[in-house]
Design a protein around this nucleic acid. Structure first.
Lengths: 211, 211, 211, 211
DNA sequence: CATGAATGAGTGTTCATTCAT
DNA sequence: AATGAATGAACACTCATTCAT
């Protein structure tokens, strides 16, 4: 009976996580307004009423979903840049590919599109996301580009804009997959896409003369 | 009285434009689902019923917003590509800067983020947008890149992914402005941002040897 | 110019009739509530506003339609029964077939179904229709049946109920054609149907012994 | 409290029936289009939303009204025809009288007039009614007439038209009661009316010679 | 704890009616 | 006289939220 029907206590502790997981999927798929709480509850295997035992409102559920989704995103990255000893081009390549594997190919992949869609309706959340995720992500990119320029591997470019310019195609692919890409239009193979991006961007950054 | 109450005829001709303008503002501000037709009508200074004299449904209104706003710009872009005689690098630069001026710096700037947010909930709209805007926009980029490669100005790169890779930073800036950027975080000067992007991308595409 | 574009005066006089004719068709087809005044106006070749020059409201239009439709219905019948010299069976047959030709196969055919549908909503009209049409129609039937019984051609049956029993199948066919029959279901050839009806009813009324 | 507020479960089971009963009354009184779901709900003592817990749409509610009210009666009729062992004349009499008692004298009496009035506007409902009620009702009549003719109790008549000819007076009386009859005009005593009808029709169908 | 029946405010859409031209 | 643009009340249906069991 323990496994077949876990004890009430265990269920009670697991419930919020099951609900936010179900909610994440649906929020990502349909947006905040488009998600019906009945569907969230159903996907988590409980009734609509039960949801209200754990979350006061649809907004409260949304906030919990985002907060919970952000923490794992933060944990990714950072160690790599500290310890890397090869070329900066290789570092940039590794950083982007790693990010893709850990975020873009994970269950968190939908969070960026979700934040972009709902930032306007949840400014505090957006601000929190910005402070905790975006800023740190940019910091990683900044260090890589600075390293490359300091070592004369990269040309001198405007640092702050280059950070976003170079990360934009990666983010965009993710966003695409969760929005218009769902219609089947213009989906790229991620590896080819990232290869093309790195091919162009690294050559674009390279310090040598172009004859 | 002429000015205070323009003739019926003049109002009738102006109405659709007034309504799509009001709709554009509200769609961008609140999303498709979140926009009430009553508010659109009120902002255009008419009653809810009047809106239905000009547009059959909320979806038809949306399509008109896109049709009226974006299609002419794509047509202008096509004209540019058709008639341009200079270098392909210059053509790419012109295409992107023009796009920015006519969309990114206009009232249409919110449309890409709007579509990304609502695509999941309104597949028909997404499909319409894909057919009307995305496909045609890609076609323009495709022609520019093909031209550059054919004239040996650009290196040979994977065409279909390069189209999106190169356009992604432009789109991303816009999306940013209408989502997390609204919190005041990380806004770039568009001209610097686009300059950095073109600087890197054009060098990345250039055909010469890198020493 | 007289024929191509009749004088204003002529148009003005013809308008109400053109409008009620158009309205009759639509009321019969769609019922009172289901008929849009815009469609009535369009079918009569005028604008919605014009309709209100001639009729104060949708109800007023409906009343005019019925009143106008009733007069021709009244004119039918009556002479036949007075002058007929053959058998009562033949008279009944002739009366019913004639009624069918003059009403059932004419543009007035839809009026009975319309009255039945809307009687509840327009009691005064229903009452008027009853007094002027139904009562007189029953009187004709009553005279025929009384004649047949007086001449011992027909059995003695309950007169008042027989009147309606015998007319019911004729009315019912008409009603059918304008309601469920429109779905293509179970439409009979009127002549076969009436032949079967008269075959059964006249034998059912016949005075002789059944062995 | 048991009686004042019945248990949830009992209410839930009773609700659909309470709602279809309320709907039947209002549909008959005001027609399909003229009936507001809010009024149906109110008459059943619940809110508008509750109605949608049990029926997906106004049309679904209508279909349930028919299904629940009329289908069992047709089934009972089929049982009668299956098991009857007496004369076909007696069977026809029983079928019609039973029909009258269970429909004509019940709360369902208004349904035929309702369908006739609304068929034009709601083809899907008409089609449903045709498939569910008319076709099956005709089948019953067909079997009775075929039985009579096969046993040489009835003359040979055109089967398909006879079905409708013989049922028309019964239907017509009902239609009358819910339309023009409401003005108090020309109401017959149902028993006398049906007796006259059966008297004439059965003699009209009888196989013997008429002398 | 958990349920799910019940609620009712909210929105897209229709259409009879009005009235400035 | 005629038009047709404009109005706004009305209704089917949805869904976040509540609460008796």
């Amino acid at each position: 009976m323990d496994i077949a029907t876990p004890s009430r206590q265990r269920r009670k502790e697991a419930r919020p996580g099951e609900l936010t997981a179900a909610a994440l999927e649906l929020f990502v798929e349909k947006g905040f307004a488009g998600t019906r709480l009945e569907d969230v509850a159903a996907r988590a295997g409980v009734s609509k009423g039960t949801l209200y035992l754990y979350f006061d409102s649809k907004e409260a559920l949304f906030k919990a979903v985002i907060q919970e989704g952000i923490v794992p995103i933060l944990e990714a990255g950072a160690g790599l840049v500290d310890s890397f000893t090869g070329s900066s081009a290789e570092l940039l390549r590794r950083l982007i590919l790693e990010w893709w594997q850990r975020i873009g190919a994970s269950s968190l992949a939908g969070v960026p599109k979700l934040m972009i869609s709902e930032a306007g309706n949840f400014p505090e959340l957006a601000s929190y996301y910005n402070d905790t995720v975006i800023t740190r992500g940019r910091e990683l990119m900044r260090r890589v580009l600075q390293r490359g320029m300091a070592r004369a591997e990269f040309r001198s470019v405007d640092l702050e804009t280059a950070i976003d310019v170079i990360f934009a195609p990666v983010l965009m692919m993710l966003i695409w997959q969760y929005s218009l890409g769902a219609c089947g239009c213009g989906k790229h193979d991620p590896e080819t896409y990232l290869a093309t991006h790195l091919d162009i961007a690294l050559r674009g950054l390279s310090a040598g003369e172009v004859a």
